[in-house]
Design a protein around this nucleic acid. Structure first.
Length: 482
RNA sequence: GGCUCUGUGGUCAAGCGGUUAAGACUCAGCCCUCUCACGGCUGCUACCCGGGUUCGAAUCCCGGCAGAGUCACCA
């Protein structure tokens, strides 16, 4: 079997959005799955849409996503250059060859004439006007320096067909296809043409891309045929949608890959999630590493219908990745968020990590979760009331006062010894442990929900701060009850 | 509008002529429990519609309907 070569060919027009990344991922997975080569090619033939720095975003995104290309502008594999603008002379050369074989022709029509062609429903279709120009006339006008384009010569009749790896047999009447421009008047090729020439020259035999090309692919095949080149296999992918009607896109301000990282998503979780959007391993596995994706990836699992991007599910998956981290790993990955939170520099990150790991789905939740370690002040004393535990404000006060008597004598200020002390206290007083813990936790944090229990929070805060807060809360309760 | 494609719970998604139509997210409830989480359990909700073919159709065929893509000197 021939060696598989796939490619990702983005145009540098800004950020890398999720849909693009998934196409890239599938092309990568398919190549790796079959021991093939994955090529990165930059399609910058549209000078008007070029965005400075966009190429760097592409490199950066691939790297953090864990997708490494085997060939590209920065990794020569002998098929370069890998940037289309640097291949410019090539295209004209090949277009001329196509003119000789009759697969293409020069066109001198003005924009005005083209505009006057108006068909039904505002749809124009070029009328092959210049196809009938004699060779001499073409030569003369070329020599006179008249501006021209080169158009593909699509047969007027017949049907063009091919078999798509995911959509199956596709047949399009030739009459529905236009004689598209291959070489623009600025001498640059259009996507239609550059793509075909480059894919052939780079020996790309599996073309994996969005399904917006599904119905124009027969046209590209005609080009391959005119050249006498072997057609590649095609794998078209359904789009990722924002909702049932709209595609996920930069235009609607939808988050791109780097935005998600900034929001505290792990790159491997994002990659994992988008791999599953439009593809299924057909078992119940959902949390898959890149290696597993490579192993399991299969065209058969690719769906034909669009899928809607569900951030809630990606968030859940991200949480799954976090849950299996060790505290050390968590600190390493979350350092940026920890450093910007209330615990920055003041607390033991590893201790905090243990509490945060099961409670955080995306890293950006960290600051809000630990804020109670820094902020403390007057709070609503009725929060001490707890029906199920049968705690009233007076009972809470009593419990807190017992704590205030007992705790200063606890020397080893750790979760375990605090627990031991409080359990003994509860037993002595004939209380349920919750009737002690609950008020204490509230007393030293001042908020209803905390990332840990009373003793865990106390350990973090330290003896001095805990006792200070406890005193404050005792006073607060006394005042409320008087 | 022409052409191309698609149509399983709110979302992702198994299913490939015979199933009580998986599983996951979300949501609700319960258990666990010092809060919140985690974990465990339970529940709600689906084959777009209509015709065929067949003993039997979510699965095959046809027709509707709905949605998407495309019809550029953009990719």
């Amino acid at each position: 079997m021939e060696k598989v070569r796939t490619r990702f060919a983005p145009s540098p027009t800004g950020f890398m959005h999720i849909g693009n990344l998934r196409t890239c991922l599938y092309a990568y997975l398919y190549a790796k799955k079959h021991g093939g080569t994955f090529v990165l090619r930059i399609e910058d033939t549209d000078r008007e849409r070029y965005v400075e720095g966009a190429v760097d975003v592409i490199y950066r995104t691939l790297e953090t996503a864990g997708i490494s290309h085997d060939e590209g502008p920065d990794k020569d594999g002998g098929f370069g250059p890998y940037i289309q603008s640097e291949r410019k002379p090539l295209y004209l050369e090949y277009a001329k060859k196509l003119v000789e074989t009759g697969g293409a022709y020069y066109c001198f029509c003005s924009k005005e004439r083209l505009a006057s062609l108006g068909g039904e429903n505002g749809v124009h279709k070029y009328d092959k006007h210049c196809l009938s120009l004699s060779e001499e006339e073409v030569e003369a006008r070329l020599a006179a320096g008249e501006p021209y384009v080169i158009r593909q010569n699509v047969p007027a009749e017949g049907v063009s067909e091919y078999d798509d790896m995911v959509f199956g047999h596709i047949a399009v009447p030739n009459a529905d296809m236009e004689d598209n421009i291959l070489i623009k008047s600025d001498g640059m090729p259009t996507y239609n043409f550059a793509n075909v020439v480059d894919d052939h020259l780079m020996k790309i035999n599996y073309v994996i891309r969005g399904m917006e090309y599904l119905s124009s692919t027969p046209k590209y095949n005609l080009l391959y045929d005119s050249f006498g080149w072997e057609r590649p296999h095609y794998m078209h992918l359904p789009p990722i949608m924002k909702d049932a009607q709209r595609k996920l896109s930069k235009r609607y301000g939808d988050a791109n890959f780097e935005d998600f990282l900034a929001k505290g998503y792990l790159p491997e979780a994002v990659v994992n999630y988008i791999a599953l959007l439009g593809w299924s391993p057909k078992n119940d596995r959902e949390k898959l590493s890149m290696d597993e994706l490579v192993e399991l990836f299969d065209v058969d699992g690719i769906s034909k219908s669009p899928s809607i991007f569900d951030e809630a599910k990606m968030r859940w998956l991200n949480g799954e990745y976090i849950k299996e981290m060790t505290p050390e790993k968590f600190v390493e990955r979350a350092r940026g968020f920890l450093d910007k939170s209330a615990v920055a520099g003041k607390y033991d990150y590893l201790k905090i990590a243990k509490l945060l790991i099961p409670r955080v789905e995306i890293l950006s939740e960290i600051p809000e979760k630990v804020e109670c370690l820094r902020s403390f002040g007057k709070f609503d004393p009725t929060m001490f009331e707890h029906k199920k535990m049968k705690i009233t404000m007076p009972l809470a006060l009593e419990a807190l006062q017992k704590c205030a008597e007992l705790l200063p004598s606890v020397d080893e200020w750790t979760d375990e010894s605090l627990k031991a002390a409080l359990n003994a206290l509860a037993e002595r007083e004939g209380k349920k442990t919750g009737q002690i813990y609950l008020p204490l936790r509230l007393a030293i944090t001042g908020v209803a929900t905390t990332p840990g229990g009373a003793t865990e929070m106390a350990e973090l805060l330290g003896k001095e701060e805990s006792l200070k807060r406890l005193d404050f809360s005792v006073a607060l309760l006394k005042e409320a009850l008087s």
